[in-house]
């Protein structure tokens, strides 16, 4: 009985840690198997490249990604575009630089070291262009939402006609996964809105998965390095713990006592 009581205490402690997650996760999100979950989780390179395409052709017209640089696109653990490809991507954007020797600002093609060019100059401009709603920056969006990747993945596919009795204002859409179900963003994806270079069928489901994978990488660019190091670190710690355990037993065998 007492043991049971203690067990309940311990369990309730651990559930306490995830209370915040549970509180935000009352909805059942759509599930898919993410390659980056688990002890050895890695990004699906092709999905990241396709995801970047969806981001740049669809999302980037409203959503900024201001903490990423073009060089990140060719770095290890990311989409791993070739450096030439990343340079070409960068060069397709114009950035304002300066002042030059004459004190004038000028525009030039972006370089690898430049941050992703933002679609709007500032938050106010973004709001003005989107009926007052600010399209959030996507750099850490996955980590900034309670349901994480599952939430984003579901939201992209959660658009439907409002149930009877729900009236929507102009420019407001119904999404069954959105908090409060009302969203200011029109359904961004439709079948075939992008044309994948690798021949993958660009269904809404496929694009949702690809772009969510890309957003996960954008939020956690060192995820692969983290998983690899974590495995090594924990194996190392376990071996060391075992060695120290036997050393401890040996040392304590000199005294009449348990350890």
């Amino acid at each position: 009985m007492k043991k049971l009581f203690k067990l309940i205490l311990i369990l309730s402690f651990f559930s306490l840690n995830s209370v915040q997650t549970f509180a935000a996760e009352k909805v059942d999100y759509l599930k898919t198997d993410w390659s980056f979950k688990g002890l050895f989780g890695k990004f699906d390179r092709a999905a990241l490249q396709r995801g970047y395409q969806v981001y740049t052709e669809v999302c980037a017209s409203c959503h900024s990604m201001k903490y990423l640089s073009y060089r990140n696109l060719s770095e290890e653990g990311g989409p791993e575009f070739s450096e030439a490809a990343a340079k070409a991507i960068a060069a397709s954007f114009e950035v304002t630089d300066g002042p030059n020797a004459d004190g004038e600002m000028f525009t030039r093609p972006a370089k690898l070291s430049d941050k992703f060019v933002m679609p709007y100059e500032n938050v106010k401009a973004a709001q003005a262009a989107n009926g007052g709603a600010y399209p959030p920056d996507m750099s850490v969006l996955v980590k900034a939402r309670g349901g994480g990747v599952d939430y984003i993945y579901s939201l992209l596919q959660g658009y439907e006609d409002p149930p009877s009795g729900v009236t929507l204002d102009d420019g407001v859409y119904y999404n069954k996964y959105m908090y409060g179900n009302k969203i200011r963003m029109a359904a961004p994806l439709s079948d075939g809105i992008v044309e994948y270079g690798d021949g993958t069928n660009a269904s809404v489901e496929q694009m949702s998965k690809d772009v969510t994978t890309f957003l996960m990488w954008a939020a956690e660019p060192h995820l692969e390095a983290r998983h690899q190091m974590g495995f090594k670190a924990i194996v190392y710690l376990i071996i060391l713990t075992i060695l120290v355990y036997f050393s401890m037993k040996k040392i304590w065998s000199r005294v009449e006592s348990e350890v």
Partner: peptide, 27 residues
């Protein structure tokens, strides 16, 4: 005696710690 015992317990604690850092850093 106590150094090695504390060390052993610390290592077990570090395994839990490492799990959080490397696998669920934001939970």
């Amino acid at each position: 005696y106590i150094v090695i015992k504390d060390g052993f317990a610390l290592l077990m604690f570090m395994i839990v710690f490492a799990f959080f850092v490397f696998y669920t850093p934001n939970i």
